[in-house]
């Protein structure tokens, strides 16, 4: 068995990205949609680390970018959950189909 190379890593991260996009478009539960977005962000992190390790081993840009993505994703998730809790208080559900007061 060979050691995993750049293409293996990119395959995993790209698959993760599109699983995230698919989940975001098909799931109707807000928390699950948020999880899909986290999948997308994690796939990007994986991308950066793989590129940093295999393609540009001398530079640290990718690793630093990953750290910032993790921090920003945490902030985003905190805010999104606060908004979802507030939505739950007014709508009594976290199904996106219930939030349909405004359309077209």
């Amino acid at each position: 068995m060979n050691n995993p190379g750049l293409y293996h890593m990119l395959f995993v991260s790209t698959a993760l990205f599109f699983i995230g996009v698919y989940g975001f478009f098909t799931r109707r539960n807000l928390i699950t949609m948020l999880m899909s977005i986290e999948l997308i962000l994690n796939s990007v992190c994986l991308n950066f680390i793989a590129f940093n390790k295999y393609a540009w081993p001398g530079k640290m840009d990718g690793l630093f970018f990953t750290l910032f993505i993790i921090a920003a994703a945490a902030a985003e998730a905190a805010l999104a959950i606060a908004i979802i809790i507030n939505l739950y208080r007014s709508h009594n559900t976290i199904d996106v189909n219930a939030a349909e007061e405004m359309k077209y």
């Binding site: 949609m33 948020l34 977005i37 990007v44 985003e76 999104a80 908004i83 939505l87 208080r89 939030a99």
Partner: peptide
């Protein structure tokens, strides 16, 4: 509440796309 939910989800999604 509905507006904020739509805003945060679409902006988080677009950030993910941009990062990729």
């Amino acid at each position: 509440a509905e507006a904020a939910m739509k805003m945060i989800l679409s902006s988080a999604f677009s950030t993910g796309i941009m990062l990729f």
